[in-house]
Every structure is written in structure tokens, then in C-alpha cells.
Amino acid sequence: MSEIELRGVGKLWGDVVALSPTNLLIPGGSFTVLLGPSGCGKTTTLRLIAGLDSASAGQIFVGGRDVTNEPPSHRNLAMVFQNYALFPHLSVADNIVFGLQVRKASKQEQSERLARVLALLGLEKLRDRKPSQLSGGQQQRVALARALVAETKICLMDEPLSNLDAQLRQEMRQELRALQQKLGLTVVYVTHDQAEAMSMADLVVLLNRGRVEQVGSPREIYARPATVFAARFIGTPPMSVMALDGETIKGSKFAVAGKPSKATHVAIRPEHVSLDGDIPATITASEYLGADSLVRCQIGSEQVAVRITGQQVFEPGQNVQLAWSPHALHYFDNDGRRVEQQTPT
């Protein structure tokens, strides 16, 4: 009963398209991440779902109910803001029960729910503090508590972890995910950090320039990127995308066997390339990362990244012979769409 559906939803700011008409189904009880670079329309999408902005076109359904013209408070959802949006003059407890007071919940219900959510997030000792007396991570928890106390089934989160340091972010990721599963929440989570998306999401919605590039589980998106953008965005480092010149990699004499006829680009993940083959390449840079190293090589005019174990040492300018399995290659056509490999019969 807590699924969210967008039907042809678009948003214009004057002449600027913030979101092209989009169809999207966010299943109830899922952790769905809206992922993309800044300006891709992910926050716009979230704000449209929340009702903070109104859609220029299309309909929005929450739990099967058309809420397109409903104010935010009638959509039965909670939201965590990027800057937390805590009321600076109210104590932690007052911040959390703010919404309950608006809805005129009884004193007893307020204190019961408050106690429950304080315990859930381990905030009992901070209940009388003001937001300015809290650390970033604690403020984040209070914001989360304020969203959870409403006990709605849907929680929208706008880059909630982006103001935290890396260590805390890691911890909060796991905790958020655990909370979501424990409470059976539908979470719509906006982030530009693909590692965050991959580690938390059931479903990733990859956006670029106001359009949905791909919708799928993290594994699907990683294994089978639907577009060149998805290939270049997902993964640290992402796939190396090489332009083709007819049958060969541009600027080289190396012909890619089994290339689909429509393909104009070929891509491969760094971990699928090794240094024990027959594809001539020149090393341009090498980056030591501890457990492994990332070596950037040049084939013709195109760059390809290679992930190797950390012990090996390479110098720029060195010539190497690369190898990859034809099955590890991804092909894209001139429009950036994925082209499936012909399976050899």
C-alpha cells in the first residue's frame, strides 16, 4: 500500500526542463535510490513526490491514490532534508514531536511515540539539547527521528548523509538500511554518490539531464549498463568506453572480434582486463590504491583502465600486452544505447 508511481511526470522551470516526462514505479517496501550527477533531476523528482513543487505534467500516485494536486501533508509521507531542517530554537524532543503537535496528537501519544523513536535511534540522552549543541551525525539522527515519528510508510531522503564525514557515512548507510528493513519502509533516497547507491539500494533509478537512463537493481546496472552514461557513471573507476573506427579500436589496428554491426563504442570494466594477452597498449599512468593498482593504458587514441594487484609496479611509457574475454565487453550504438552481443551459435 506504499508504492509510488509516476505517470508521465515532468517539470519545467520556465523554459528549462528539470525533468522530462517520466514513468516510474517505486515498489512498496523497497529502498529506491535516485542516482545521478548534480542537475540531473533527482532532487526535482523527490520534491515532486513530496509535493514541495508541483508537476508541470503527469500524475503522481502514492499507495494507488492520485495525489498530484494534494498538499505535502496529505500525501502520507515523511522527509529528511539535506541540511536536516531542524528548528534551531526547539529541543530535540520538541523537534521530533513537532508534526504530532500539528496533528494535535494527545500528550500521551506524543510522549509514547517520542520515547519509542528516541530509543530506536539511541537519542535518549540528547532529548533536551538544542540542535546547535549536537554534532552533524546527531543532527542527522534527530532529522531521521522526526521523519520516523510520523510512522508513515514512506520516507523520502534528500542526500541525508552528504554532510557527514566518510567514516560516519559508512556507519549510517548500514544503519539506515537496517532501519528500513526493520520498519518495512518505502524509502526514496536521493544521492549523487554511486557507492552509496550500490551499497544500499534494492532499486537504482539512474538519472541524467532530466531523463531516466536506467532502472534496475545495483547488480543489473553494474553488470549490464543500458547506456554509455550508465557505463561511465557506475563503478569506481567506471568502465572504460572506447570509440570504434569500423572494426578496430579508434587509432589502432586492433580489431574487436564479434562486434555487433551497429556498435560504435565498446566498453569494459577495469577488473576484466589483464596484462597477459596480445592487445598492444602503452601505459600512461598508474595509481597505487593499496590492495590493487589502477593502470591507465592507451590503445590507439583510446584510454582503458586496468585493475591489477597492488604489488606490480609500472612506469608510464612502458609497452604492455592486454587481454580480455569477449564476453566481458559491452557495446553501445551511436545514440549511446546498449547493443547486445550476438551470441555465437
Binding site: 513530496a50 505535502p72 501533508s73 532534508f81 528548528f87 496533528r103 510520523a150
Partner: peptide, 17 residues
């Protein structure tokens, strides 16, 4: 911060509240 108003709007707080 305008997000305070938005946070209140999500909770359903009216102008006067």
C-alpha cells in the same frame, strides 16, 4: 532557511502554526 517551511509543510503545519 526555506527548508524549515518545507519541513513544516510536510508535517501539515498551517501558516499560523
Amino acid at each position: 532557511s526555506p527548508s524549515l517551511r518545507e519541513a513544516a509543510a510536510i508535517e501539515g503545519a498551517g501558516r499560523w502554526f
